[in-house]
Computed example of a mutant assay.
Amino acid sequence: MFKWKKFLVTGALCALSVMTLVGCGGQQAAAPSSSSSSSGVATTIKVGSAVDFAPFEFQDEGQAEYQGFDMDLIRAIGKEMGAEVEIQNIGFDGLIPALQAKTVDVLISGMTINDERKQNVTFSDPYYQSGLTMVVRKDEQSIQKFQDLKGHKVAVQIGTTSANEVKKIEGVEVKEFNTPADCFMELKTGGADAVVNDRPVSEYFITKSGQTDVKELPDMLTAEDYGIAVAKDNKELADKINAALKTLKENGEYDKIYDKWFGGAKK
């Protein structure tokens, strides 16, 4: 995910989480490489993450450990690999340089898999698909796909990609609001027929607010996959991460982590 988009999503969630950039591990330099067991699996995996992107990685006031979907997932992957996970908070722009300098072994930070980054890192299999989705009232039947929005009122957060993309759909009355909470209130009161926002923003808000009278639709206007990054020349580690991720999906642990942060929404 590009830095400007991370900023927009974080801003949308600031009312829900108090985030800091100080804590567990901080930004102190680490040893160039992880210690390894005789089996070849690192006993400690040094993980870099920009801990300012709820619900993927953040630090709540009064909490010592970093929290979020990415944080729980990488710890579960480490456990499956038989390794301890040491998380370092690094600015997003500094993540790939830290990986190249071998300050860290792994990156997980809501990072979109794209061709530009593939030139510098090796990505795991995708572990999350983001993009723009719709939320409607639970009894809504006339809206199933984005093309069905024609003739309807749609609430969006001002200044976001969702606002820009919905404005491109012909025949839609776009209503812009400052926060996701305002968008959902407009939907609840009947002033809007749908809310369009980034998938994690909508799912996390629904989970945190406990709303049960709305539903997220499976149709996605844009899509981007998130991946775990390792050094370009470290395919062995990428393979081990992929194997652990596959196991977590097969044994249900991935679903448990997903449901914790996104309330059992579409995976």
Rank of each mutant, 00 (worst) to 15 (best):
A31T: 11
T189A: 05
S130E: 14
V136N: 04
F92I: 08
A231I: 01
P55M: 04
F7C: 00
D125A: 15
G40M: 06
E236L: 11
Y258W: 15
N197Q: 13
G78V: 10
L221C: 01
S37D: 13
F262P: 09
E176W: 08
F123L: 08
S35M: 13
T112A: 15
R75E: 12
Q144M: 09
C14T: 14
D182A: 07
L107M: 00
P97G: 09
W4A: 11
V104E: 10
S209M: 11
D213R: 03
S49L: 08
K249N: 01
G78T: 06
F58S: 04
L149D: 05
T133P: 00
F53T: 11
Y254M: 00
F2G: 14
Q27T: 13
Q157C: 09
N234G: 05
V156S: 04
K249C: 02
F2E: 14
D233K: 09
S17A: 14
V230H: 06
S39H: 03
R137G: 08
S34R: 09
N178L: 14
A15T: 12
E65P: 07
D233E: 13
Q144R: 14
L217Y: 05
P32N: 13
A155W: 02
S39T: 14
F92D: 11
D219N: 07
L248N: 05
T44L: 12
D148C: 01
A29C: 05
K235Y: 05
D60G: 15
E86R: 12
E253A: 07
I108L: 06
R137L: 10
E86I: 05
D60V: 02
L8F: 02
N114P: 06
V201F: 00
S209A: 13
F146Q: 07
T212G: 00
F53C: 02
M19Q: 14
V174E: 02
I241C: 08
S124F: 07
F69V: 05
G190S: 02
Y66W: 15
S35Q: 12
G210Y: 00
E236H: 06
Q144W: 04
R199T: 11
K168V: 09
G110Y: 12
E224R: 12
M111P: 06
A29G: 05
F56N: 08
T112L: 10
K46C: 03
Q63S: 14
A64F: 12
G151P: 00
G23W: 04
K79W: 04
F69M: 07
R199Q: 09
F177W: 02
A29N: 10
S142H: 10
S37H: 10
K118E: 15
K256P: 08
G94S: 13
I108A: 08
G263W: 10
K232S: 11
L21E: 12
A15D: 15
S37Y: 11
I77S: 04
E253Y: 01
V214L: 02
A194K: 08
K145V: 10
D213V: 06
E224D: 14
V85F: 08
K260Q: 11
V121W: 07
D255C: 06
G190M: 06
K6R: 14
D70H: 01
Q100K: 15
W261R: 05
K266Y: 08
Q67C: 04
E140D: 11
V154R: 01
D219R: 03
V106K: 00
V230M: 05
